[in-house]
Design a protein around this nucleic acid. Structure first.
Lengths: 333, 333
DNA sequence: CTGAAAGCGCTTACAG
DNA sequence: CTGAAAGCGCTTACAG
């Protein structure tokens, strides 16, 4: 690896001049600058030491990476929107791969010039978030929230919208309303079932526990769910699907089976992107703005970096909202 | 900003010990280590100088950022898959925002510890890619390709699939086939029109130039396109839409207007993700694997980093393929 | 605009 | 396991 000394030699200038070029000092002649830059590029110069760039904010997968999902993409877009203004750069890390065996998370982050971390988690990796918070490293957790004094959270509160969504179906005359929930628990999903139950209660109707159906949050899970529902007797006339990808599978299978939406079956979905416009018919859905969540996560992190002594954990819920489109209609059975 | 000296003082150890903790030296007592880490976190220690992390690969927007799009998300996922193996970290940069007024792109990258760059571009920002390549900085361009000796490219070659797609429609008996193309030119799209023309030629049929329709690659563009087509006389009975988002708009508007797909109108789309499964009916489409493109981009970059003296530019095309689903059928008009 | 020399912050070979 | 001291690589105040 070339050092400033070698670059200086090759470019025929002093190491001072090389350093000035590296640091973009204004008083270097164009000629000297281009000689140095040439030597740097041909020798693949990389500073081994020097001012570190310490302006990275990391988007960290504590467990399984879901990089590539539209939701994560929207989160990053939101973060980037806030970061640009303050000159931070976005780095993507897989905690399990990036961390060396004997180092702490703080050490890993410092090694990579990371000043703060947005942690993507599930219930399985809660302990990682807890550890990072315990180490005192500035971080904020997305996608789950749990009761702990020192962890910062941004989560989405879908309780109210889930209650509205269920009430919407009840008021359309539906009585047998199924709810599809992921087989993996997290607090963001628990809210949705809670809203569903509360809507039934406030309409003085009992919840039929058979209508609370767990299904994996994949396309296949949604397909399975439709087949399951159509075979029930009496069968539900409406359903609330609490995961975006499940909705896609369910609607596909419904089309394949010749089930008319909403005439034969009303569907309320969940959308964290633009999915509600992609499917046919356009989807009545509880919506959340992933962009906004990402932006808010950065804001909290930035706030924590500005005020290192503020130890009060942030627990902030962003609301979801119900949008009524074409996949729900009156019960006619 | 705290330095090793202050951390050492606060933790009651020597700066040597602090340094050892930073670098995860094996022979430090747990007690010393935790005292130092504590002092670091409470003082928000960040190394001002020292071994730089120089293992970053940047995903760079040379022009307008499309971070948040499913395509970009899939590209990054592909890159990350390759990078993990070699311990590189992924950084996202907006070149126009990150670059200081008087520095070169190479200087910007070095400042941020970036060793190589995957450049996302359009025709508008070709000159940026050219400049970066001229500076000798290891980079590879995605999304466009143009004739230049020293720029590395990974692009998607949709000529053959576009020809197949058009032939598929011709062989279903369609004669009046429209093609929708983005108002903004790039080489990846030019291939698609070329394939369309070639299919007509090989069937000894003339191309009606009125059927080559430019429309902005947004949902609204797709809606507009359908209205345009349905008002033509005689109207096209099939079309090939060369942008994913345009397809979504077009299918929505078709549903709204009561146009039956494929009975009234056959549609071949373009899909760089999973869109073909989301819409109804499932979409016959020319498909490309964005994951694969991202992975290949990293591979080329890695190869260039290993062999700095290999100056031969890589121009690699990844093929697309045609998938026939339910949105195309025989012409019955 | 440029360079020799002192300086800075972190690292490391050596001694205990 | 720990620290005083020398060293490394880059930076910068000073002189020209």
């Amino acid at each position: 690896m070339a050092s400033v000394r070698e670059i200086a030699k090759e470019a025929g200038v002093s190491i001072t001049t090389v350093s000035r070029v590296i640091n973009n000092h204004p008083r270097v002649s164009e000629k000297a600058k281009s000689k140095v830059l040439n030597a740097m590029n041909t020798n693949r110069y990389v500073a081994k030491v020097g001012r570190k760039s310490t302006t990275n904010i990391a988007f960290v997968y504590t467990g399984e990476s879901s990089l590539g999902s539209p939701y994560d993409a929207a989160l990053m877009q939101g973060m980037a929107a806030g970061m640009d203004e303050f000159g931070f750069d976005l780095m993507i890390l897989d905690a399990r791969r990036a961390k060396l065996p004997h180092e702490t998370y703080t050490q890993m982050f410092m090694r990579k010039g990371v000043r703060g971390a947005v942690l993507r988690t599930t219930t399985n990796t809660r302990h990682v978030c807890q550890t990072i918070a315990d180490e005192g490293f500035p971080s904020v957790v997305l996608g789950d929230h749990f009761d702990t004094p020192n962890v910062n959270f941004i989560y989405s509160d879908s309780f109210a919208s889930s209650q509205e969504a269920t009430s919407h179906l009840l008021e359309l005359g539906h009585k047998r309303i199924a709810i599809g929930i992921n087989v993996i628990d997290d607090s963001d999903h628990a809210d949705r079932v809670h809203g569903y139950r509360t809507a039934f209660e406030s309409h003085n109707l009992p919840v039929d526990e058979r209508n609370i159906i767990r299904t994996p949050a994949y396309r296949e899970g949604g397909m399975q769910l439709i087949r399951r529902i159509m075979s029930m007797s009496p069968r539900p006339t409406a359903m609330y699907l609490t995961d975006p990808i499940t909705v896609v599978g369910a609607m596909q299978e419904a089309h394949k089976m010749g089930i008319k939406i909403p005439d034969d079956l009303s569907i309320v979905g969940f959308d964290d992107g633009e999915l509600r416009y992609y499917v046919y018919p356009q989807l009545t859905a509880v919506c959340q703005n992933a962009n906004e969540i990402g932006l808010e996560a950065f804001r909290v992190l930035h706030e924590k970096l500005q005020n290192p002594n503020d130890k009060i954990a942030v627990k902030k819920a962003l609301p979801t909202w119900l949008e009524i489109h074409d996949s729900t209609g009156p019960c006619n059975q």
